[in-house]
Nucleic acid binder design. Structure first.
Length: 425
RNA sequence: GUGGGUGUAGCUCAGUGGUAGAGCACUGGAUUGUGGCUCCGGUUGUCGCGGGUUCAAUUCCCGUCACUCACCCCA
């Protein structure tokens, strides 16, 4: 056991990968149904990109990034997907090609945090971004799409939380109002909150420390300082969600840890499955200033990311798969060459085949075929070999018949295809 | 960065100051060549690592490392 995976970075072995694939396919299907197309961006970006977009005084930038120097470049493993996507959007002047852009992505992200349940140093996010649509209808549809996806995956106990952080002017006003409110009560705050007061007072609002919560309870609400346009936008979001009959709760203290959010911000949580304390499945919001800040024209944008590991923790086990595939059991080395060519013929017809070349007892091979969930098996011994036939057994119906070499591939295909179609219906 | 928990077979875990067990898994047989149930047998361990106490430590003590959960923050 000399080598181990790097702390917080996990292998997905074959017993888990079907669940991953099911989730990824469901996400991609849902995203395409809503008009998104895939974008793939590099895992490594210039460090400045993240500092500029996520914000210099965020936890992510201050202490969670995997940054390194390569020759003259300061580089960072992406801690999230929006910055890279927006960089690509600006770099390729996509805004000049189309007025509204809808992208989805899926891949690993990296944050050097202390690992725990539902939080890893290399973790997988899937996300969507819309550029060029100011909302709020787009915002509501995005939230509704996520709720629909989670329901399809069988995840229950969902909660949608929404808030509006206002535009940048509003946000500045609110920040001042909060500083004014908290400063006289500094002593009543936790040490942590006291540090934040100067840098980012909004974060005190979602502190879980009871001391902070007590003080924050009386703080002015973000919703009270929204300007008319912000308020109209937020009301529009709520109306659209109502129209879609998507349940939500307004959480005026929902503040997300990335600085780029403006106006709409939201989280989707669940209490289901084996989720621990990290029960936010997806989070996102508007970032109407980022395109311009990264050098493009003023372009409204909204996006979200969801954590695949967390969703997998919340997903119920799927029903056992139907029997499929064929196991070939040659008995004795003389039967092996014929077994191999039969295996290839059957595979050519689209049926999964495993040929057992280990030379073990028939009982052992049978056990293995069964535990693999095979639908059929072929027994080829000396007697069959000399007569040009095999025994074809249906492991589900416990029936067996003799089939000639010339017909075996087609017979297996018929057996396994029928079973697959019946199972899928 | 802070705090708690756990390290014993491939997996899940019992256990004892006198150098280890169960279930599952794997495998052989009961059935000269037929799975899922049953029965009988077999294989697998530096008891995380280092030090201390002791005649003797997997067990007690100290340290260390790893894993894990929670705080923080986020997906």
């Amino acid at each position: 056991m000399a080598f181990r995976a790097v702390k917080g970075m996990n292998d997905v072995l074959s017993n888990d990968s079907p669940r991953w694939q099911r989730l990824e396919r469901a996400f991609q299907r849902q995203a395409r149904l809503y008009g998104y197309e895939e974008v793939r961006t590099p895992v490594v970006e210039h460090t400045d990109l993240f500092v500029r977009s996520i914000g210099e005084v965020t936890d992510v930038v201050e202490k969670e990034m995997y940054s390194f120097q390569h020759h003259r470049d300061a580089l960072t493993l992406r801690p999230e997907g929006t910055a890279g996507a927006t960089r690509a959007y600006v770099e390729h002047k996509v805004y000049a090609r189309e007025t509204v852009t809808r992208w989805y992505y899926l891949g690993p992200m990296f944050r050097a945090e202390r690992p725990q349940r539902g939080r890893y140093r290399q973790f997988y996010q899937a996300g969507c971004e819309i550029y060029g649509d100011p909302g709020p209808v787009a915002d509501a549809e995005m939230i509704d799409m996520l709720v629909g996806l989670f329901r399809q995956l069988g995840i229950g106990e969902l909660q949608v939380a929404i808030n509006s952080l206002g535009g940048s002017a509003t946000r500045q006003r609110y920040r001042e109002a909060l500083t004014e409110y908290f400063t006289p009560q500094v002593g009543a705050l936790s040490a942590h909150a006291q540090e934040r007061l100067g840098k980012n007072p909004l974060r005190i609002l979602d502190s879980k420390d009871p001391k902070d919560q007590a003080v924050a309870a009386g703080a002015p609400s973000m919703l009270d300082v929204l300007d008319d346009a912000d308020r109209e936008h937020f009301d529009g979001l709520k109306r659209a969600l109502d129209a879609l009959e998507t349940p939500y709760v307004v959480e005026p203290r929902l503040v997300r840890g990335l600085d780029y959010y403006t106006r709409t911000s939201f989280e989707i949580r669940s209490e289901a499955g084996e989720l621990g304390a990290q029960n936010t499945l997806a989070g996102g919001g508007r970032y109407d200033n980022m395109v311009e800040e990264l050098g493009g024209p003023a372009t409204p944008a909204i996006g979200f990311a969801m954590g695949l590991e967390r969703i997998l923790l919340a997903m119920p086990e799927s029903a056992a798969a139907d029997r499929a595939g064929c196991y070939i059991m040659p008995l004795g080395s003389a039967a092996l060459p014929k077994a191999l060519t039969i295996a290839r013929e059957v595979r050519a017809r689209g049926v999964r085949v495993e040929c057992d070349g280990r030379g073990q007892s028939l009982k052992s091979q049978m056990r293995r075929a069964d535990s693999l969930g095979m639908r059929a098996c072929i027994v080829l011994g000396e007697d069959e070999l000399s007569r040009g036939v095999v025994q074809l057994k249906d492991l589900e119906k416990h029936t067996q018949r003799e089939v000639s070499f010339t017909e075996i591939a087609e017979q297996v295909r018929a057996l396994c295809t029928v079973s697959a179609e019946a199972g899928g219906a």
